[in-house]
Computed example of a mutant assay.
Amino acid sequence: MVRLLAIGAGLLFTLVVMVSFVVDAYNAATTETPKTAEKVFHLDAKAPEGGWSFSGPLGKWDIAQLQRGYKVYKEVCSACHGMKFIAFRNLAELGYTENQVRAEAATWQVPGVDPATGESIMRPAEPTDYIPSPYPNDVAAAAANNNAIPPDLSLITKARKNGTNYVYSLLSGYQEIPAELTEQFPEFSTPFGLYYNPYFKYLNIAMAPPLMSDGQVTYDDGTEATVPQMSEDVTAFLTWGAEPTMIKRKQTGWPVMIFLVFATILAWMAKQQIWSAVKPSKRKD
């Protein structure tokens, strides 16, 4: 009797779960999701008009672009964001000589210790040092940025969906709230301290436009420093910073693929040679 009651209770529980699942699935399929400004006016990230030189299986780094991007990062982005996984010695991969890397590192200040007194000091960086954060800790970072902590940019293009295109679109996408948005959603607004950017999920972002006007940075190679150009260059640099071996990996992949195809052909030919003298047996019923 107890066993029958247990079986009945189990069947009843299973039935209730199945009915609940069917009802919830029906409601989810038939209930119309209310439209919000975030869903209607949010834009998907996009690449610049000419694409990226490093995209695709045959992509390559544009060294001049990476150097321009580093300049934008140093003069603009480093005021709020660090790159704690990138050492100054890594800049040699951008075409700088050893002396240039050493000189460039010395233009940065990093925490150190006075060998005479043992007190904490700021000293010129060396090639073995890593690009520092402008803030000593998260509390100081939040206090200086309206309670929003600027993220480290070392892996930012890997940490965001469609990261490279997202960073580029975000940097170049600041704008005024469209009149169409306020017409459809009169209740929508950008609070004080936030900025409208359709490429940000919630449309209002705490980061002020870092690239505010053309010519904000002067490029050494004479390239015109428009906002889209600076956004593209610094995004390429951040992509390199997140995955500096990407191009080497692609270049290594081609010989590996060719070898695997060749080895497969050899294996098939060897199999044919070994089993060529073996005749299939005729089955008798």
Score class of each variant (00 low, 15 high):
Thr218Asn: 09
Gln251Asp: 13
Ala87Gln: 14
Ser169His: 11
Ala267Ile: 12
Pro34Trp: 09
Glu49Arg: 03
Val101Phe: 08
Gln251Ser: 11
Gln229Lys: 07
Ala25Glu: 06
Ala105Cys: 03
Leu203Gly: 01
Tyr196Asp: 01
Ser281His: 01
Glu187Thr: 12
Leu171Asp: 15
Val2Tyr: 15
Lys46Asp: 00
Lys71Gln: 12
Ala242Thr: 07
Gln229Phe: 02
Gln216Glu: 04
Gln184Lys: 00
Leu170Trp: 01
Asn99Cys: 07
Pro134Asp: 14
Leu194Ala: 07
Gly118His: 11
Glu32Asp: 14
Ala225Gly: 07
Glu93Tyr: 05
Ala25His: 04
Trp268Glu: 07
Thr30Lys: 02
Gly112Ile: 13
Ala208Ile: 04
Tyr199Pro: 00
Ala242Asp: 05
Glu232Pro: 03
Val17Gly: 02
Asn146Pro: 12
Ile131Met: 12
Pro244Asn: 08
Thr128Val: 06
Val72Thr: 13
Asp44Pro: 00
Glu126Met: 14
Val16Glu: 12
Lys250Arg: 13
Ile121Glu: 01
Glu180Pro: 01
Val234Gln: 01
Lys284Glu: 02
Ala105Gln: 02
Gln184Glu: 08
Val23His: 06
Leu43Asn: 01
Lys279Pro: 03
Ile63Asn: 10
Phe88Glu: 05
Cys77Gly: 13
Leu43Met: 08
Leu171Ile: 09
Ile156Lys: 00
Thr245Ala: 13
Arg3Pro: 10
Ala242Glu: 04
Leu91Thr: 06
Thr128Arg: 03
Ala92Trp: 08
Ile247Phe: 10
Gly51Ile: 13
Phe259Asn: 15
Ala103Thr: 09
Ala103Leu: 11
Ala29Gln: 09
Met122Ile: 15
Arg89Glu: 08
Thr264Ala: 15
Pro132Gly: 12
Leu181Trp: 02
Tyr166Ser: 13
Thr30Ala: 04
Gln65His: 06
Val167Gly: 11
Leu170Asp: 00
Tyr70Trp: 15
Glu98Lys: 15
Ala143Tyr: 02
Val217Met: 07
Tyr195Met: 09
Ala125Asp: 11
Gly59Met: 13
Ser53Arg: 03
Arg102Cys: 01
Arg160Ser: 00
